[in-house]
């Protein structure tokens, strides 16, 4: 019963999560709790398992052991170990919105329809209702002038902002960002970060993998450092960036131009 209680209050609750690719353990007994309204940043060098951890949350990767609850509901498997049927899995997945490094827009649909596609065909919203919502979201990300454009005509920053609107359109419990600015030209990073920052100010619950240290420091409530699949440090951003406990994190931050307070 105690598990049900903690899961109820948490947007995401990850317990004893482990995963291996072949013989390599990419996640080792990871525990993470994301409260509603909280922004959690996952930091670590490449290959540390941070993207895998994020992708486990919406079951794009299947963990080997452990459990993940989204707003109190378990994803992927039932408590008795049975795999979740695809329809049920899709329903839980819809509680999460994901923004990918490579945007992954659907090129055969224009901007507006990229955003309305899931609300109409997953949630069964009417076209009118979905379009009203999509227009409001595209306005929020500063893309209202591009409704009729196709993805191949947009810049990377514009694509990513549409992808954020697409994920928001399902009104998810938690937004997952997988290195959302890593594929962008440096001059386009700012416009995407600004949108994410707005979302955090509005109280969206977010889990983010990023290499933007100054940004992580500015928006996070909790910073988690992953090393070889193990969470070796977790703290509020001030503590994490100013007085890290481990040598490993200290070294990592030295190599990443520790940001001055935002």
């Amino acid at each position: 019963m105690s598990e049900a209680n903690t899961s109820e209050t948490a947007a995401v609750s990850i317990r004893h999560l482990s995963k291996s690719f072949d013989d390599v353990e990419v996640l080792r007994d990871v525990e993470l709790e994301v409260k509603t309204g909280e922004v959690v940043t996952i930091i670590g060098s490449s290959g540390s398992g941070k993207s895998t951890l994020l992708r486990c949350i919406n079951w794009l990767e299947k963990p080997d052991r452990g459990s993940i609850h989204i707003a109190g509901q378990r994803i992927g498997v039932h408590d008795d170990g049975r795999a979740m049927p695809v329809r049920e899995l899709a329903k839980v997945r819809a509680k999460t919105g994901m923004v990918f490094q490579g945007f992954n827009l659907w090129p055969h649909l224009n901007v507006l329809h990229n955003v309305t596609e899931a609300p109409i065909h997953v949630q069964g919203k009417s076209k009118r209702e979905a379009e009203a919502l999509a227009k409001a979201l595209l306005d929020k990300v500063g893309m209202s002038h591009k409704h009729d454009s196709y993805p191949n005509t947009l810049s990377g920053g514009q694509k990513q902002r549409v992808a954020i609107a697409r994920a928001l359109a399902m009104q998810p419990t938690v937004m997952l960002f997988d290195e959302p600015t890593s594929a962008l030209d440096p001059e386009l990073v700012g416009e995407v970060l600004a949108v994410i920052k707005d979302l955090s100010a509005e109280g969206y619950t977010m889990v983010m993998v990023t290499h933007e240290m100054a940004f992580a420091r500015a928006v996070s409530d909790q910073v988690v450092f992953l090393e070889k699949g193990l969470i070796i440090e977790r703290a509020d951003p001030e503590t994490f960036f100013t007085t890290p406990k481990t040598d490993r994190v200290r070294k990592f931050l030295e190599n990443h131009d520790t940001p001055s307070p935002a």
């Binding site: 899709a90 990918f100 697409r166 399902m170």
Partner: peptide
Amino acid sequence: EQREAAMATGMTPWI
């Protein structure tokens, strides 16, 4: 990537 984006929005494999 596009398939993952679809699944991430809650689409079933059929949709």
